[in-house]
Design a protein around this nucleic acid. Structure first.
Lengths: 331, 331
DNA sequence: CTGAAAGCGCTTACAG
DNA sequence: CTGAAAGCGCTTACAG
């Protein structure tokens, strides 16, 4: 556990010179530089970043708030964040909030106590969040959130994406299209439902709210919704799930009662997680640029951290609509 | 950005008293305590943890080295770690190493520079790692690794688990049982293969190395191995994959050429990720106590961090063998 | 119970 | 180019 003082002694220079040799080598003579570097190698000196952080009032860490780390879509976004963070010299503190506001608030104490310099929020912003994330207090950016985020964000156009999915189903002849949303207060539920309704309206199909079921983005909730659809008097011929997990769960539910997907009923997902290519049938879904969303978010946060301002408040990345095996013409 | 000095001034006491009121309230008079607490509330004081960390030569952060965060099994282990870490007052720094030793070494610099106090390694230890993780240098524990880890570890008995899976297949009449391992140098590949061989040996079935294919724990590699099996002259009637992803990928491969799983060929997984219950067919697999592995690892690391010694070098948690729909009697 | 003082390891104006 | 000194925000023996 050598320190800068020991290096100075061995090198025969002052601690100021050692510090300068490390931080501003151009401000030090060749001779001193060599003596310092030799001494560093000799004593095996490693700078104590705790001291540096303290000196600079910076933790060089950012906090990532993720609703559910075990969700492969989120963990892919986090990987993108981490890649860029490391490259910029920042550590990533994990904040798995389990969709709990209380847990989230606990994590945000890391900001007040200077243990994190900024935040990337993966949970979509809800009006009820109010000013918790007022951009004035600390650097924060939203990744894969929704329209209406009151701080900088990177996302896709969720409504447009969901609309395109439904238009595809309509083009296949479907008119009774069931929905599996996330929790009712999740902004993604609201925004994607808007896209769904828009597609219906454009096609002159009346909206029927009995076709909307509430899930929670889990596999299980998709299966649960399928059961509800199965017991309806006027069954839908197609289902749009607001993420891939629920679509996979729903397909499981339909198949378990002998229905064929997509020939008896079409099902669509959202996110395009890896598993959606391996499901039986493969999933028709929206591909979100997960890694890119994470990388962009971290790049934006980094600019904020450097005191710069952003050119835009919202960065919209392109999505891709991918037709696979889970959708077919209405029987 | 108020500090302890400001609180002291407002409260009319010394900074030492403020500090004591915060850290050892019992050593302060009721009167002073009240004055300090009132002042803290008044100025909105939050302790600067950067200063505390510097003072104590501790970062109060631990580094989690994970081979692949997007793998749901690993992310579940990480969630367990995080739960306990937070409860103990530690932050978790994410180190997604992508199975790269170079990236791992980058992360380990966080220890040298005091940015992390300890490490939890999710990658199984390889003999080639040598002394990188010599327990003498810093507190480190292995989670979900293998037998033979030269530092404290929490894991299941992988060989026994894999053996039980194969015994089950043998009991169903299978004798030509294919294998999809992880990368050849991954200790899990070696240890689980040992369990496979043991089951064969116990049943008097000769080991045939042409039945062993190398995967990399990804969905794609499972599908790829399936293709290899399909082209074999003497096809296996059952396949054991060393994780669920590869099993799911393999099933996909078999189904794509018209084979029925499990009636034409049985397939087993390992880990019991959530998706394995939703696959078609559902997966016969080994359930690892993922959350518990993470929690235990963090508890052990915490004891190490406190300078205590551990009662055991290895903590073996029970696994569960789960028979679902992907295995059946040999045709 | 309380306060003045030293010190954690660094960096950076400041004076030379 | 170089060094002595101050200071970042805390904590804790030490003396009272």
């Amino acid at each position: 556990m050598s320190n800068i003082r020991e290096v100075a002694k061995v090198a025969g220079v002052s601690i100021a010179t050692v510090s300068r040799a490390l931080s501003h080598p151009d401000k030090v003579s060749k001779n001193s530089l060599k003596k310092v570097n030799d001494a560093i190698a000799l004593v095996g000196y490693k700078p104590n970043m705790l001291a540096r952080n303290f000196r600079f009032h910076k933790s060089y860490a950012i906090l990532v708030l993720v609703p559910e780390l075990a969700n492969p879509f989120f963990s892919t976004v986090v990987k993108g964040i981490e890649d860029v963070a490391r490259q910029k010299g920042f550590n990533v503190l994990l904040g798995d909030s389990r969709d709990s506001i209380d847990r989230e608030k606990e994590y945000l104490k890391l900001i007040e106590t200077r243990q994190a310099d900024g935040v990337i929020q993966l949970r979509p912003h809800r009006p009820a969040d109010g000013q918790i994330f007022s951009h004035a207090d600390f650097p924060v950016v939203s990744a894969c959130g929704c329209v209406g985020t009151p701080y900088p964000s990177v996302r896709i156009d969720n409504a447009a994406a969901q609309q395109q999915v439904v238009e595809h189903l309509i083009s296949l002849g479907h008119t009774r299209i069931g929905v599996i949303t996330g929790l009712a207060d999740n902004p993604h539920s609201i925004v994607r439902l808007k896209g769904y309704k828009q597609a219906l309206e454009n096609a002159g199909i009346p909206f029927d709210d009995t076709l909307v079921t509430e899930g929670d983005f889990s596999l299980w909730s998709g299966l649960n919704s399928a059961t509800q659809f199965i017991h309806m008097d006027q069954k839908p011929t197609a289902i749009v799930a607001f993420n891939d997990e629920m679509a996979i769960g729903a397909i499981k539910g339909f198949k378990s009662v002998g229905l064929d997907v997509p020939n008896d009923i079409s099902v669509t997902g959202f996110d395009d997680i890896e598993f959606s290519k391996y499901n039986e049938p493969t999933l028709t879904t929206i591909s979100q640029p997960a890694t890119e969303l994470g990388k962009t978010a971290m790049n934006l946060l980094h600019r904020l951290l450097e005191g710069k301002t952003l050119a835009q408040q919202e960065y919209i990345l392109p999505f891709e609509f991918i037709v696979r095996g889970s959708t077919a013409n209405k029987a």
